[in-house]
Design a protein around this nucleic acid. Structure first.
Lengths: 344, 344
DNA sequence: TTGAAAGCGTTACCAA
DNA sequence: TTGGTAACGCTTTCAA
């Protein structure tokens, strides 16, 4: 049996005063005399009293808990977003509890259910890759539970959003390759049913068009975003009659796969084929050659998401009848140029 | 104002029956008639009722929450340990809430305070690097709150422990280098005041001794565990009159720094200097040359830690008067041989 | 099979 | 300045 914890009642009994007095004394309520405050805090310290936040949450109707759900906690991007969220939330006295969907819609639903039951004060989420129906997110909004979607979101849900401009990121990457003199630029895309990958593909096409380079269908391949996928698809691309002289990959793992395959084929990087990835994973600056990539500002994204959520929470506490319009923050991605695309 | 949530009372009023009946009906208590159960669940579904876990926690005295504290959530090792913890905990209906100490003892203390106030049912933690006084952990034990320390622990605290055998890991790494014919093996150590780094140093020395290789003081340097530190100290090591022909680094970042410096100095790896790191970070298999390292089984560590904690929790529920002795699980690390140390 | 009431640990309101 | 009491939403025990 867990040890019996010290309660306000214990302190009250010890001093022969009322619990309500103890409660007020501990929070230095102005109507309580200094002597009482002193007495109470002394006993509280002696008994090693710690408030029971669960009881407080029940009466206040607030848990001071923020639910955070991401596809995978151990992916660099999400881990650092979570870190950003935590920094901001903690400063305001909120704790966070973390859930992962494993990119599985039914896990996602059950996580939302759990958060709801735990009466979190708000939810920050990045939805599962395979989620295409967003009723469970709409339910959150319908319950007036503050919600912020980050990185992955969907226009069907009118919530706050923090994301980067994937279109612009891709546009920058491809324009840079064109600057370097590349003329036949291939694209290893992600599943085009997914918003962010579609946007990256759009940015790729737009950049080509704006620079008067024709868009060739067989220079675009769709991958599963794995390193192995990057290798295989690079082989496919090199089998083209007219080989590409650059590859823009939708993430860094496929970019790395491409680079490995090119190296094994004795193709010079970046002179014969230049490569740019996406996400700026830590390893891009460790490998040889270092890989040019797009920085997504994950930590900052997390911070902003938390900020939006806290705004909503404090907004909903006030009885402002007007409904606050949802906030959409789209960050500008940054191109980091490294060896894999910088020609002499 | 957040929307008013549906409660048991709402359902009871709707049906003109008592809350207690509703409560029992919803959990299909055997003494409640099937008709009532049907009626109740129908209304519950219609009103979209969700139990308030906070209220339940208050009356049951259990929060179903596990507190997890690590130095940094965005470090690969910890992120994947957390993932392991979550998998196991969730299966048993526990949620986890995550805290990071930022390797700062005062953050660590305040996190413990918060967890205590939140009435977590148990704590899994890896202590801050700079923590050398463990009273705040002892407090947890004194309150009979289940505690498991993982990876970083201290003998001053008699808690459950899950860790790897750092001594053995280092021993394996160094023995492997000797097998490869290396005779002058340097060691880039971590702060030797920290248990795990001290153990790795011990393993290093023991391996040398067991193979009849003299231990030379100036082949051992202490680093801050950063990539940059690895580079600088490799320079120091190469300045020795008799240069080393192998380096055993206490983590993968310093190993990578060493490799970069060796490459820039046109020293062949592994023929002239072989390198082994520690932790088996993902990037070790991406870089050139791939880096030999020691796998620490972080995910598994997390799973076992959670298992130990759940054992403690269920043990403390039973009124078994006998105090359960603390469980120490020491995993055996695994040597992963890659290009940086495998000679032809 | 159902109901009534007490209680979990706090807070908040009104009365003393 | 302090005390009493109801209330938060649920579970549990005992009575009906």
């Amino acid at each position: 049996m867990g040890k019996k914890r010290v309660t306000l009642t214990d302190i009250a009994n010890e001093l022969n005063i009322d619990v309500s007095t103890v409660s007020k004394a501990l929070k230095k309520h102005p109507k309580i005399s200094d002597v009482t405050i002193k007495k109470v805090s002394k006993v509280a310290r002696r008994l090693n009293y710690r408030p029971n936040d669960i009881a407080t949450a029940l009466v206040k109707g607030r848990s001071n808990l923020i639910g955070v759900m991401v596809p995978h906690t151990d992916e660099n991007f999400f881990a650092s977003a979570i870190r950003g969220i935590e920094e901001v939330a903690k400063k305001k006295g909120y704790n966070i509890t973390i859930f992962q969907s494993n990119d599985d819609t039914s896990d996602e639903k059950s996580n939302i259910e759990t958060m709801y039951r735990a009466r979190v004060d708000g939810i920050i989420a990045s939805h599962a890759m395979e989620t295409h129906e967003f009723g469970h997110y709409q339910d959150i909004l319908d319950q007036d539970i503050p919600l912020v979607l980050f990185d992955r979101f969907n226009d069907a849900i009118d919530s706050d959003v923090v994301a980067i401009d994937d279109f612009k990121g891709a546009y920058k990457a491809v324009s840079h390759l064109i600057d370097q003199g590349c003329t036949r630029i291939a694209h290893i895309a992600g599943q085009l049913s997914v918003h962010i990958y579609k946007e990256r593909y759009r940015g790729y096409k737009q950049a080509l068009e704006d620079h008067g380079i024709p868009n060739e269908e067989n220079l675009v391949v769709e991958s599963d975003m794995s390193l192995e996928g990057g290798r295989k698809l690079t082989l496919t691309l090199l089998n083209n009659r007219k080989k590409p002289n650059a590859i823009f990959a939708s993430n860094d793992y496929t970019a790395l796969g491409a680079i490995q395959f090119l190296q094994e084929s004795n193709i010079d990087i970046p002179e014969e084929v230049a490569v740019v990835g996406f996400s700026n994973e830590a390893f891009t600056s460790y490998v040889t050659p270092t890989i040019s990539s797009i920085e997504q500002h994950s930590r900052k994204m997390g911070k902003i998401a938390a900020q939006h959520l806290l705004d909503q929470i404090s907004g909903s506490t006030e009885s402002s009848s007007a409904k606050r319009p949802s906030q959409k923050t789209i960050l500008t991605p940054e191109l980091i140029i490294r060896e894999s695309s910088k020609k002499k």
